[in-house]
Nucleic acid binder design. Structure first.
Length: 491
RNA sequence: CGGGGUGUAGCGUAGCCCGGUAUCGCGCCACAUUUGGGAUGUGGAGGUCGUAGGUUCGAAUCCUGCCACCCCGACCA
């Protein structure tokens, strides 16, 4: 299987795609631009969901669910928002099918046309704000801190497994606050939650920043984001958190009586991460042998492969490892024993490597004689023969070690691929030849930003939070610049 | 929506120019030998050749319509 698997640096796209399919994460579906997430891939997503959900709860949020279909009129209430999403919406126009009279099978019944079309949500701001209107009267009703786990649909022209699919799974938090400060704090807080998650669970370091006006979410006053760097030198927007100001409150007429007796519009935020994170996970750690999963998110952390010729041998091996397995499970380690006799050991080794299982334990007759286990780590592809009595502690340490090693390697790569340039020539050369993240001066205008994008395809990923102010000249126009901003080619 | 291309077994393909009932590899099934890094041998199953029509004694092959998908551009979490 792995023999025809493309190498990472030759054609990164092909490599990525093959990997996602062969590691059993997902497959393309017959439905345009939609993917099928397979059980193994979905179990990783579930793990991500569980961790994020707990973090949301810790920060005071609760879950709710809103409808998939949004009346067209809702969408048009916030001008910038429609503008941003209008071009990629799937629309429900009819509610009934019938058998075709000419025998062409099932057709849409023209009689069943909807009075008002329904939009399949590209995001839920509008329907949620239409609902919040009924929930909010007083400052005592605030804040509202609600999250929703859902699917959304954006009719993208070009799709790619996990990174950009027509339908994707995500969470979207929608909060309402009495004051501007509180809303801004909320947006920033959730950005921190995301950054903490990507670094400490996905082992994917990110740059936290603010989007330029041009890259801002449709309807937001300020968009905060986390940007990660992939192995091919392209940036990936891994999560966003928006301060929506009073835009949606005004569009949906959501007002409350404040302590001072005044009627005021509420302040809003929204924030989300999606199955795109799965794409980030794949592109951050995987190698030519397949997926590499950080232990904290791996559905299987340790796989045990017994090597046996007959049932007697298998039983002897199982007797040996069962106490260790029981103890590992008790410690909360996710262990799997693969004692199938339908596949050979070499096949299993390759298979679990492909699926990114962090630790593999092989046990055969040699080990029974010597009271040892062969323990292999996926991240460094090294093996060690360990005394069976010490295996438990060894494996526990190894899982921790792998988690931190992956983060360290990704951090090093981020650092090595971050460049600072001062001239257009350098900029062009760096973007085109090295890739990666490039700090450069920018005059602050949207026209310049667009022109740069047109010229070499790089965009401003963000203005990093805590970015030092320093006088300089815009790399393109030579006009005055207050600070360097972060450029990259992006997914 | 513009420009280009492709539809043949679960997957990847040959055959098409020059018409005669479909090739090869992977995978799948059975048996045997194997089993510490993706085994080998033998045998076997699996096909409306995208679809509808036309030309022809005969169409995967030639012609026409339709459908689907892919690539390049505009768009994008």
């Amino acid at each position: 299987m792995a023999k025809n698997f493309p190498k990472r640096n030759e054609d990164f796209s092909a490599w990525y795609n093959e990997l996602a399919i062969k590691a059993d994460l997902a497959q393309n579906s017959d439905v345009r631009g939609c993917m099928i997430i397979k059980p193994y891939g979905y179990s990783i997503w579930e793990k991500m969901q569980a961790v994020l959900d707990e973090k949301f709860k810790e920060t005071g949020h609760v879950n709710a669910y809103f409808p998939l279909l949004i009346p067209k009129s809702y969408l048009s209430k916030e001008a910038a928002h429609v503008e941003g999403f209008a071009k990629e919406c799937a629309v429900v126009t009819h509610y009934r099918l019938k058998n075709d009279e000419d025998g062409k099978g099932v057709v849409v019944d023209p009689e069943a046309k909807l009075e008002e079309e329904l939009i399949i949500r590209p995001t839920s701001e509008t329907i949620i704000w239409n609902t919040y209107k009924g929930w909010i009267q007083s400052y005592r009703d605030l804040p509202i801190l609600v999250n929703q786990w859902a699917n959304v649909m954006r009719w993208e022209m070009r799709t790619r497994l996990f990174l950009r699919t027509s339908e994707f799974l995500w969470q979207e938090g929608h909060t309402a606050h009495a004051t501007q400060e509180e809303a801004i704090d909320e947006a920033k807080k959730m950005l921190e939650v995301y950054a903490d998650f990507t670094e400490n669970y996905m082992a994917m370091p990110v740059i936290k920043g603010v989007k330029t006006a041009n890259e801002r979410f449709a309807g937001a006053e300020e968009t905060f984001c986390i940007e990660a760097l992939m192995q091919d030198g392209k940036a990936l927007q891994a999560g966003t958190s928006h301060f929506l100001g009073q835009n949606f409150a005004k569009a949906f007429d959501v007002k409350f009586s404040d302590k001072d007796g005044q009627l005021k519009h509420v302040w809003a935020t929204s924030w989300g991460v999606s199955t795109r994170l799965m794409g980030g996970l794949i592109m951050t750690h995987s190698d030519d042998e397949g997926l590499v999963l950080p232990p904290k998110l791996a559905p299987i952390q340790v796989v045990i492969v017994p090597i046996f010729n007959n049932e007697e041998q298998l039983n002897a091996i199982l007797d040996k490892i069962n106490p260790i397995v029981t103890e590992l499970k008790k410690q909360g380690v996710r262990v799997k024993i693969d004692d199938r006799d339908t596949q050979r050991p070499g096949w299993k080794f390759a298979e679990y490597e492909f699926k990114g299982v962090p630790v593999r334990v092989a046990v055969g007759s040699k080990d029974l004689e010597n009271n040892t286990l062969e323990i292999a780590r996926r991240d460094e592809k090294t093996k060690a023969v360990v005394n069976a009595n010490e295996a438990l502690a060894y494996i526990q340490n190894l899982l921790i070690e792998i988690q931190s090693n992956l983060l360290q390697k990704a951090k090093n790569r981020l650092q090595e691929n971050t460049h600072t340039v001062d001239s257009w020539e350098d900029f062009e050369k760096t973007i085109n030849e090295k890739g990666g993240l490039v700090y450069a001066h920018w005059d602050g205008s949207t026209e310049t930003e667009k022109l740069i994008k047109e010229k070499i395809g790089a965009t401003i990923r963000c203005i990093p939070i805590g970015n030092p102010l320093q006088e300089g000249k815009c790399i393109l126009t030579g006009k005055v610049s207050k600070q360097r901003v972060l450029f990259a080619k992006a997914y």
